[in-house]
Amino acid sequence: MSKSNKKNNNYLEFIPIKNPQMEYETDENGIVIIKKDWVGFYNKIAQKFFHKPKTSNISLDEYGSFIWFNIDGESTVYQISQKLDAHYPKMEKSLSRLIKFLEILQNHNFITWKEID
Rank of each mutant, 00 (worst) to 15 (best):
M91L: 03
Q82F: 10
E25K: 00
N57V: 05
K83T: 09
E92F: 00
Y24I: 01
M22Q: 14
A46V: 04
K36E: 14
E115G: 10
H108T: 04
P16W: 05
I34A: 15
N10D: 07
S2K: 09
K54V: 14
V32W: 04
S59D: 02
T26G: 06
P16G: 02
G73Y: 06
I99P: 08
N5G: 03
E25W: 03
E74L: 09
P16V: 01
F101Y: 13
Y42G: 08
F66H: 03
Y24Q: 09
S4M: 03
Q106G: 10
I33E: 06
N109P: 13
L102A: 05
D61Q: 02
Q79M: 08
S96V: 12
N107Q: 10
N57F: 13
G30C: 04
Q79P: 10
L105D: 05
S81Y: 09
K35R: 15
K18F: 07
P16S: 12
E115F: 11
K6E: 00
K36Q: 13
Y42Q: 15
M1C: 03
D117H: 08
F69C: 02
E25S: 06
I104S: 02
D37W: 09
I71A: 07
E28W: 11
L60H: 00
A86T: 06
T76P: 09
E74H: 13
I45E: 14
F110A: 11
K44S: 15
K90N: 08
S56D: 04
S4P: 01
N9T: 08
Y24P: 04
F101S: 08
L60G: 01
I67P: 01
D117M: 07
E62G: 10
K3G: 00
Y63E: 05
Q82L: 09
K35E: 15
M1N: 04
N57D: 04
D72R: 12
N8H: 07
D37Y: 14
N9L: 07
K48Y: 08
I99R: 07
K6W: 01
V32D: 05
K3V: 01
K48W: 03
I67G: 00
Y11E: 06
Y63W: 10
F110T: 11
S94I: 05
L60M: 03
M1K: 02
Q82K: 14
I80M: 02
G40C: 05
M1F: 12
S56N: 06
N8W: 09
Q47T: 15
D117F: 06
N19R: 15
T76H: 00
G64V: 00
E62R: 12
L95Q: 10
H51M: 10
K35N: 14
Y63I: 10
R97S: 11
N57A: 08
F66D: 00
N10A: 08
V77E: 04
P20R: 15
F101C: 07
I104T: 09
F50M: 13
T55P: 02
K114P: 03
K36H: 13
K54D: 15
I111M: 01
P16D: 13
I111Y: 00
M91T: 03
I80F: 10
F101D: 02
Y24F: 14
L98T: 00
S65Q: 02
F49K: 10
K54T: 12
N19G: 12
I104Q: 02
S94V: 01
S81M: 10
F50Y: 13
T112E: 11
E25I: 00
I104W: 07
S75A: 09
K114T: 09
N107D: 13
L60A: 00
W68D: 08
S96T: 07
